[in-house]
């Protein structure tokens, strides 16, 4: 059910996004920072599922709130002539790597334990024979 929702959303989004008109180049920097923020939230969500403290409310508010906040900060930075979006990118991408590390560790652990179980089974069978 959840996977169907995700895949459907992705497909519809890709189709509508590729058919949508091109936005002005000035706004593309805002959109890019919003995308980075959203991606960060997605990876954070996956990591929190692994850590078993996933909360949909926090996840959703992070997804939209972070995007809008980062856009607002970028706008403020433009007005103040400070490249704040660089700081936002550093934070988001840094966190993305951290979360990716958690995800990677979890799956490697799972994989290793699976291999060990198989080995143990084989050893037991040999002992029985």
């Amino acid at each position: 059910m959840i996977y169907i929702g995700i895949i459907l959303g992705c497909v519809i989004g890709a189709i509508i996004g590729s058919m949508a008109p091109v936005i002005p180049y000035t706004y593309s920097s805002y959109l890019s920072i919003a995308i980075v923020a959203a991606l960060d939230t997605v990876f954070g969500g996956i990591a929190s599922v692994i850590k078993k403290n996933f909360d949909l409310k926090i996840f959703l508010s992070g997804f939209f709130g972070n995007s809008i906040l980062s856009i607002a900060l970028t706008y403020l930075g433009e007005k103040l002539n400070v490249d704040i979006y660089l700081a936002a990118i550093v934070v988001f991408v840094g966190r993305m790597f951290m979360n990716l590390g958690i995800i990677r560790r979890y799956y490697i652990d799972k994989w290793v334990t699976m291999i060990e179980k198989r080995k143990n089974k084989k050893v037991k069978e040999e002992v029985k024979e």
Binding site: G5, I6, G9, C10, A14, I16, S18, S28
Partner: peptide, 24 residues
Amino acid sequence: IKISILLGIMCFFLTAGIAIQINT
């Protein structure tokens, strides 16, 4: 159902944004 719809909407926004950005 609620969760899947919400996640679907989220994915829609994300992929639509990425596609528009790539096009631009």
